[in-house]
């Protein structure tokens, strides 16, 4: 096997996997706290990309300001989404809030078609992210180097927040027992808002990086990545942040490697995630890093 081809594919896999990981973290954090699959998470990802696009193209902001604005606004959007679509249903049966999540997803996608237009838009090239870097015979797009660095940093910061800070302790408390957390004078709503905010701004960062890599936007661009990253989170053990990163990386590697070395399967690329999901769930239903949990009645 050609060595440089292998390294080339490893680099591609690492960057795609890290991107998946970034988005998977949002799923897993929200699930960890609310036991809710936020089906609109992929659409939040799309929204982040679009806001960045308009901030650069319509508001003529420099790219770094546009990215910051997009990430911030998307974080706020996530907080708002929870307020409007999930909070009123928190005491209702779980199925209601799940249906609301699916509804929110369709609503955002279709509003996207109305507001942004269904025709794909292309992101103007940003030299910092759009340079080809050569390592011997391996050449990668600079954005592919940034993504794993961002994901690594974010993972470290999140693990620190969850593991070492008081806010993180409150998050773990809410995730184990909401009423007991209330009895500790923890403002449960604030903890949940914080979680949605963080998850959504990571989705925005993921969306922006995605468009740096594949510079085309359309209102349904979040559907497939959203689904795959949800799978990544489940594979890693949903509710577990490190697990989401592991799941994302694994998914990225398998996708890239199968397409690279078994090109006859290229057409099944998107199906691989689901195959992997089935295999992992059969072997370890709680995911790779997940713990078995008794269902609370």
């Amino acid at each position: 096997m050609d060595r440089s081809l292998l390294f080339q594919q490893l680099a591609n896999a690492l960057s795609l996997g890290s991107l998946y990981a970034l988005i998977a973290i949002g799923y897993t954090m929200v699930y960890g706290i609310l036991r809710l699959i936020n089906f609109a998470h992929g659409d939040v990802f799309m929204l982040g990309a679009y806001i960045a696009f308009y901030a650069v193209s319509a508001a003529a902001m420099p790219w770094w300001a546009a990215f910051a604005v997009a990430i911030g606004l998307t974080g706020l959007f996530g907080i708002g989404l929870e307020r409007v679509a999930y909070r009123p249903l928190r005491d209702s049966p779980k199925i209601s809030i799940m249906i609301s999540a699916i509804g929110a997803s369709f609503l955002i996608e279709n509003l996207g078609v109305v507001v942004f237009g269904g025709r794909p838009k292309s992101f103007a090239s940003i030299p910092l992210f759009d340079t080809v870097v050569h390592f011997g015979s391996v050449s990668v797009l600079s954005v592919s180097l940034f993504i794993p660095v961002f994901t690594g940093l974010i993972l470290a910061v999140l693990l620190w927040i969850v593991g070492r800070t008081k806010t993180g302790m409150a998050m773990r408390a809410v995730s184990t027992d909401v009423d007991a957390a209330r009895l500790m004078a923890i403002d449960v709503n604030r903890v949940i808002s914080f979680t949605f905010g963080v998850g959504s701004l990571l989705a925005a960062l993921g969306g922006i990086m995605w468009t740096m890599k594949y510079p085309q936007l359309n209102p349904l661009m979040g559907v497939m990545p959203g689904l795959k990253c949800f799978i990544a989170a489940v594979i890693g053990g949903i509710g577990n942040i490190a697990g989401a990163v592991l799941g994302g990386l694994l998914l990225g590697f398998i996708e890239i490697m199968v397409v690279a070395f078994l090109p006859q399967l290229t057409g099944y690329r998107d199906a691989l995630a689901f195959v992997l999901l089935i295999v992992v769930l059969m072997a370890k239903p709680s995911g790779l890093l997940g713990k078995r949990q008794a269902v609370k009645v």
Partner: peptide, 24 residues
């Protein structure tokens, strides 16, 4: 309130549980 069934945070350490008691 010390709730029925104790409801300590099982996956947090004893120390962390106490810290949460003083959360406010």
């Amino acid at each position: 309130l010390v709730p029925e069934g104790r409801r300590v945070f099982a996956n947090l350490t004893v120390d962390e549980n106490l810290t949460l008691g003083a959360y406010a």
